[in-house]
Amino acid sequence: MTTSNSATRVAIVTGGSRGIGRAVVERLASDGYHVVVGYRENRTEAEAALQVIREADGNAIAIAADVTDETSVVELFDGAEREFGGVDVVVHAAGVMALAPLADLDLDQLDRLLRVNVRGTFAVDQQAARRVRPGGAIINLSSSLTRFARPGYAAYTASKGAVSAITLILARELRGRDVTVNAVAPGPTATALFLEGKDEQTLAQIAAEAPLERLGTPQDAAELVAFLAGPARWINGQVLFANGGAI
């Protein structure tokens, strides 16, 4: 196995300007990776991530990319290779959520959700499969909701079930490449995406479901991503649930 030193490894993180992606960006940078912060529109948040990394003597750049547009994804990877010489780790954390009972969900919302969460995973993983160097890792973000069967989450859960399936198959398609492919499936995590529209009572009820009796943090997920990105070379083709034991 040929795994390069973490001080010279390069990581692309989609959705890297906020939420779990932001925590992953900061964690990998602290581990010595050169990091490419992929973001869609919010340059201000991406710049804030870069500032945190640079203040800690890390090395990072930000590149705008729409994960649903294959040309944009190609440009993201091209930019990483131009700046840092190659790609070792790809963390696909970009995603959107639409909540409603199945009978009430606007199908236009469903189309957008599937385009971002499923097509986006395909587009990012295609480039990762072609470009990640030996000793590298591809890590997708799925969700523990694939086990919760929570009402109102049919569309989002279906999309994340697809992410898990893509992950398991890609791991087997990369046989012989010395590249691991895994998914992290967080439980309820205190991000802006999750907290939006929920009152304190609802949040307390959800937090109480786990034996650890709290919501997850973006840093909880980032710890697992960092493990899969670096030392966890014998973990491959798996979906790892990070939810405090809720299921």
Rank of each mutant, 00 (worst) to 15 (best):
A128C: 08
V184L: 14
G86F: 12
T71R: 14
R172V: 09
T2S: 01
T180H: 03
P186S: 03
D78R: 14
N236R: 01
G32P: 14
A190R: 08
A185K: 06
A185V: 05
E173M: 07
S159F: 00
N140G: 05
Y153G: 04
Q201N: 13
V118M: 05
T157E: 11
T167R: 06
G21H: 00
R27A: 06
Y39Q: 09
D57V: 09
P134S: 11
D220Y: 03
G161A: 13
G197E: 02
T202A: 11
V132D: 04
F122Q: 04
L193F: 02
T71H: 13
I53F: 13
V179D: 02
A48N: 12
D199I: 08
T191G: 08
Y39S: 08
G19D: 09
A162L: 01
I138T: 07
I63A: 12
V184W: 07
L224I: 10
D66V: 08
A98R: 15
V118C: 02
A246S: 12
V118Y: 00
A246R: 15
S4D: 14
A93F: 00
V91D: 12
T180L: 04
G152E: 11
L99T: 13
I53D: 12
T157V: 09
A204W: 03
R82P: 00
D108T: 11
T202C: 02
L193C: 04
G58T: 13
S143K: 02
L50W: 15
G136R: 13
F122M: 08
V24F: 12
R147W: 05
Q219R: 10
V132T: 04
E47W: 03
R9V: 05
A123S: 14
